[in-house]
Computed example of a mutant assay.
Amino acid sequence: MTTRTQARPQWRVPTALILLSAVPVAAGTFRVAQLTGGARITEENARFFAAPVPVVLHIVGATVFCVLGAFQFVPRLRRRAWHRVAGRVLVPSGLVAALAGLWLTVFFPNPGSYLLNGSRLVFGSFMVAALVVGLAAIRRRNVAVHRAWMRRGYAIGLGAGTQAVVTGIWFAAAGTPSQLAGDVLLIAGWVINLAVAEWLNLKEKR
């Protein structure tokens, strides 16, 4: 009974992270099903059919990164070989998601504003850098630096989940946001996640 009670807190964080990623994962799954299942091309989805490969790479990479990455927060798993094996999948999937997202921001027919697209470039580039620095750190056996940068990379990757939450709260409280407010809400998703990651990093140092 005691073992079960002690195990439950270890799974609270990954469960919350998986729930947080549920909306973007579901939306991404629907989009991939459209692109691979021969759905009718409409005005709403035509731009996705114009460049399906980077869209699918971004969605699949982000899904694997967010869902599998949640289990890296289980202390028991971090002490086992599973953590290293999963990491070898996570880093490439995260890089694919981020690089495909950057490509889509630059070359994809995108209705986003300069503010939003500029933020996508900044946060996407930061995610790539965080994963590369985190990988380099663990190759040097620097676990603390590796963990801090991988948290930052994961925070950016999970941004879509937090964006869904903050946008949903705005809709419920104030209705449809303006273009500027909508952009700020999306940017807030990344900022909130990074703030939590930095708080965890500081907490770990104490």
Rank of each mutant, 00 (worst) to 15 (best):
T162V: 09
F123P: 07
G159K: 01
A137S: 12
R80T: 15
I169L: 14
R139F: 12
F108K: 12
R84D: 09
W149M: 11
T176Y: 13
G182P: 00
H146F: 07
R80F: 02
L121N: 01
L99M: 08
L185G: 02
A81E: 07
Q72P: 07
S119L: 14
W82Y: 14
H83Q: 11
V165T: 03
V60M: 11
H146K: 12
L104Y: 02
F108I: 08
A100R: 05
P109T: 07
R76E: 06
T162G: 07
V106G: 04
F107K: 10
G87E: 06
R151L: 13
A136Q: 10
A181C: 01
G159Q: 01
V165K: 03
W103S: 10
M150L: 12
I169Q: 05
H146N: 07
P75N: 04
G101R: 04
R139Y: 11
R152E: 01
L121D: 00
V122D: 03
G175M: 11
L116T: 14
V184Y: 06
L115H: 13
F65P: 01
R76C: 01
A144N: 09
A97R: 04
G161T: 03
Y154V: 01
L104K: 04
V89C: 05
T176V: 14
L158C: 03
H146G: 07
